[in-house]
């Protein structure tokens, strides 16, 4: 059993499925997290190294302030080596420029646990404040998107409220 930020990850599970125990982390995000920390696909929680666990904990504690990913470009099949007349300094600069390329880090804006819950609460509070239909349905503990209410609607009755917890 591994504890990270107050969440228990069961030993026998694959790491990329165990990570979904965090509120706000689904399969896709978990897969990305594993890729970032170089945890392979079939790795179980019990075989995570202590270093990987600390890395995971430090990343999940504050994804926005985590150090940026090191991107090292690989040579493609059409790569042609520069002629020897090109100075080494130029090659080095070109390599560093290529390292900086790449899209924005998708995990930078990751929100988990209480932060993710606060986003949900804020969205509902916004709807309630402006007096929209969605906010009204939340306040009435009823489904928001036109589902039937004569029977069923148990989940909405349970969860839909202005100060939603889950």
């Amino acid at each position: 059993m591994v504890h990270i930020l107050g969440v228990q990850l069961p030993d026998y599970q694959l790491a990329r499925f165990a990570l979904t125990a965090f509120y706000g982390v689904g399969h896709k995000t978990a897969h990305r997290l594993c890729a970032r920390l170089q945890i392979h696909d079939r790795c179980k929680v019990r075989s995570l190294t202590p270093h990987q666990i600390t890395e995971l904990a430090s990343f999940l504690a504050s994804p926005s302030t985590a150090p940026p990913l090191l991107r090292v470009p690989l040579a493609g099949p059409s790569f042609k080596a520069a002629p020897p007349s090109v100075p080494a300094q130029d090659l080095r600069n070109a390599f560093l420029a290529a390292c900086k390329k790449g899209g924005a880090d998708p995990l930078k804006s990751l929100k988990i646990e209480s932060e993710a819950k606060r986003v949900v609460k804020d969205n509902i509070a916004h709807q309630r404040m402006i007096g929209s239909y969605v906010g009204k349905r939340h306040a009435m503990h009823l489904p928001v998107r036109g589902q039937n209410t004569q029977t069923n609607a148990r989940t909405a009755r349970h969860l839909n409220k202005v100060d939603r917890w889950g």
């Binding site: 916004h126 404040m129 402006i130 929209s132 239909y133 969605v134 009204k136």
Partner: peptide
């Protein structure tokens, strides 16, 4: 209409 309603639809506010 207030500032916060921008981006919503008019019908959301007439139940």
């Amino acid at each position: 209409v207030t500032q916060d309603m921008v981006g919503h639809k008019l019908g959301e506010f007439a139940h």
